[in-house]
Simulated assay, not measured.
Amino acid sequence: MEGSLMPKVGIIRCQQTEDLCPGNTDFKVANEGKLGFAEVGPVEVIGFVSCGGCPGKRVVARAKLMIERGAEIITFASYMSKGNPIGFPCPHFESIKAAVEKKVGPEVPLITWTH
């Protein structure tokens, strides 16, 4: 890891929350290694992309691309599993998570929330 001892993370968010949430809390807790990142500690965010729209049209390709570009961990922003900030979780989250797990394999950890 060039110049950084922190793990590199790619965050996938819900496309429908892009206009409601700028991601600043995701970046803050990632940098501090808190909440969803407590088990891995502070991380370097190297990508912040959307799922591509319901039902996660581009999520697998985008996760794979972030890994090819250096992500060691894939994280799903909190809306997807917890519903933050709009109050309900993504109805496609379990199938999205399963598809990413199948594609990236067990060697790339998944974090299912940020804050």
Rank of each mutant, 00 (worst) to 15 (best):
residue 33 G to P: 06
residue 15 Q to L: 05
residue 18 E to Q: 08
residue 46 I to V: 15
residue 106 P to R: 14
residue 26 D to Q: 09
residue 49 V to E: 13
residue 74 I to V: 00
residue 105 G to Y: 11
residue 58 R to W: 03
residue 79 Y to P: 04
residue 56 G to Q: 03
residue 75 T to K: 02
residue 88 F to E: 13
residue 2 E to I: 14
residue 33 G to K: 04
residue 62 R to Q: 06
residue 48 F to I: 07
residue 47 G to T: 13
residue 71 A to Y: 01
residue 35 L to E: 11
residue 33 G to F: 08
residue 30 A to N: 12
residue 52 G to R: 00
residue 4 S to F: 02
residue 2 E to L: 13
residue 45 V to S: 04
residue 29 V to D: 11
residue 80 M to T: 04
residue 103 K to P: 00
residue 72 E to Y: 02
residue 22 P to L: 01
residue 26 D to N: 10
residue 86 I to R: 11
residue 27 F to R: 13
residue 51 C to G: 05
residue 77 A to K: 03
residue 94 E to C: 03
residue 73 I to T: 00
residue 21 C to S: 02
residue 56 G to E: 05
residue 49 V to Q: 05
residue 79 Y to L: 01
residue 22 P to W: 07
residue 3 G to W: 13
residue 90 C to M: 12
residue 6 M to F: 15
residue 95 S to Q: 13
residue 45 V to H: 14
residue 96 I to K: 05
residue 65 L to D: 13
residue 56 G to W: 10
residue 16 Q to Y: 01
residue 45 V to C: 14
residue 17 T to Q: 03
residue 74 I to M: 03
residue 67 I to A: 06
residue 66 M to E: 07
residue 45 V to G: 08
residue 87 G to F: 12
residue 21 C to A: 09
residue 94 E to S: 14
residue 3 G to R: 14
residue 93 F to A: 13
residue 3 G to Y: 15
residue 42 P to I: 01
residue 36 G to Q: 00
residue 97 K to C: 10
residue 50 S to K: 07
residue 48 F to A: 12
residue 92 H to Y: 15
residue 96 I to G: 03
residue 19 D to Y: 00
residue 67 I to Q: 09
residue 105 G to Q: 09
residue 1 M to F: 06
residue 83 G to W: 10
residue 19 D to M: 02
residue 109 P to H: 14
residue 10 G to F: 05
residue 88 F to N: 05
residue 100 V to K: 03
residue 57 K to N: 13
residue 113 W to H: 07
residue 3 G to L: 14
residue 30 A to H: 12
residue 68 E to R: 14
residue 46 I to R: 03
residue 38 A to M: 09
residue 5 L to V: 10
residue 19 D to W: 00
residue 97 K to A: 11
residue 21 C to H: 01
residue 35 L to T: 12
residue 20 L to G: 00
residue 61 A to M: 11
residue 58 R to Q: 11
residue 82 K to P: 00
residue 54 C to L: 10
residue 6 M to G: 02
residue 55 P to Y: 08
residue 9 V to H: 07
residue 24 N to H: 14
residue 47 G to N: 08
residue 38 A to L: 14
residue 39 E to I: 05
residue 83 G to Y: 11
residue 20 L to E: 02
residue 95 S to D: 11
residue 49 V to N: 06
residue 110 L to C: 10
residue 70 G to H: 06
residue 89 P to H: 10
residue 79 Y to S: 06
residue 15 Q to F: 04
residue 11 I to A: 07
residue 108 V to N: 09
residue 97 K to P: 00
residue 34 K to T: 13
residue 59 V to Q: 05
residue 8 K to E: 08
residue 20 L to K: 02
residue 75 T to A: 09
residue 98 A to G: 05
residue 90 C to R: 03
residue 61 A to P: 00
residue 65 L to G: 05
residue 64 K to P: 08
residue 27 F to H: 14
residue 68 E to C: 11
residue 57 K to F: 08
residue 16 Q to F: 03
residue 114 T to L: 07
residue 20 L to Q: 01
residue 52 G to Y: 01
residue 12 I to V: 11
residue 74 I to E: 03
residue 23 G to V: 07
residue 76 F to S: 05
residue 84 N to W: 15
residue 109 P to E: 14
